[in-house]
Amino acid sequence: MHLPVYVGLLDSSLRSLADAFRQVSDGHGEEPDVEYLCQVLARQVDEQLEALTPVVRRYGENREQEPERLRATGLESTRSGGVGLLRDLQDLYMLGSFVDMTWTVVGQAAQGLRDRELLQLVDACEQDTTRQLQWLQTRIKQAAPQALIAAK
């Protein structure tokens, strides 16, 4: 069974996402809404990680055999300026989308295994991930025209 591979992937990509939210929060203190909401969302991801712990315990997580290229890469550093903010939010969006699809894949396995507990968890967490992506999309749309047209 390869579910542990994806449980491991989920665990590691959630950690990357939480770290990335914190990095963007720290790196964009001059955008107070981004600073605060990224902290709130990082905590939300922390809670997902906590909720995932019993699943990891049950199925195990298999990281050793996981080829490097399947990992979600986190942010290296944040950028500055209007376009920099845009790119950082877009990186968060990519990472969030990766997490979103990983929940979907795990959810499919949970269906096949008729694992009610895991299904419930996937359902709740996917909703949170959707909210994160919707916020990122909203904020990116808002920032884009000014950053690309009028910023100095």
Binding site: G82, Q142, Q146, A147, K152
Partner: peptide, 20 residues
């Protein structure tokens, strides 16, 4: 209408950054 209208706090931020 391509994005949400810019709220005051963001207008002041754009002024601060020099794009307004």
């Amino acid at each position: 209408h391509w994005a949400p209208p810019t709220h005051a706090m963001q207008i002041w931020r754009y002024v601060e950054q020099g794009s307004i």
